[in-house]
Design a protein around this nucleic acid. Structure first.
Lengths: 128, 128
DNA sequence: CGGTATCCAAAAGGATACTG
DNA sequence: CAGTATCCTTTTGGATACCG
């Protein structure tokens, strides 16, 4: 049980809070994956990669509570749980994907900028 | 000096890394503010609110290195430094703003979903 | 399979003091 | 004013063990 509410969940305007959920490390990736189709828990875990079970659970619960993700637990043995975007979640995910797509397209520019920045700083330290 | 490179900066594909910069707690707010106009360092600090000096510095440096923010340090006493979006940064900031605006508009829906979620869980625990 | 609970290491981030 | 450096607290997140 959570004995301490995380800092991010207190004393912040609710709007920023939801924004943090959407833009959290794993939130972004979950939303983008679910934009394609439904996923089962472990399927999503494998698709995303490095995410731990705990973090995926936490992320999905947060997104479910915010009404962005629908959790469909089928009462079968072995258990089967499917996660899907709600209509609200689909809208959010499309915004998130917009950002992700932009980033992907512009990576080259960013890397060029970094080289220039690092080289400029290199010259700085040599001059000292 | 940074003795340990943060986890977030190593062993991750560069694309995700930039996405984390854009969606970081303070990155989002810096970009949205700069979309309106240039800001001086302390002006930005006051406008954003709860951000510490250290975090704002760090955020601005990261965004500058990624080529999203331009830093204009005027050689005057007392020092004056203005921060502006680059063209690349403006594109990024517009994506980020899209997400922020969506969130703001849909807050009501999210809060309704949360009430429903919490109430459902409440009934669960009473039934046990 | 799809989680929960607990513990612990790592990282983020704030406070303070100091500098050009 | 606009930072940097240092210390220290809070939060995040991974590993492990266990449950329905």
């Amino acid at each position: 049980m959570a004995v301490s509410t995380p800092r991010v969940d207190e004393a912040m305007c609710p709007y920023r809070l939801v924004l943090e959920h959407l833009t959290s490390r794993w939130g972004v990736l979950v939303l983008i994956h679910l934009l394609d189709r439904s996923y089962r828990f472990s399927e999503l875990r494998r698709a995303i990669g490095q995410v731990s079970e705990k973090m995926l659970t936490q992320t999905l619960q947060t997104l479910e509570r915010d009404g962005l993700v629908h959790r469909d637990a089928k009462p079968v043995i072995p258990p089967r749980v499917d996660y899907t975007l709600t209509d609200l979640g689909r809208e959010a995910a499309e915004q998130v994907r917009g950002l992700a797509t932009w980033t992907h397209e512009r990576m080259g520019e960013v890397e060029k900028a970094r080289l220039a920045y690092d080289e400029a700083r290199e010259r700085q330290s040599r001059a000292s």
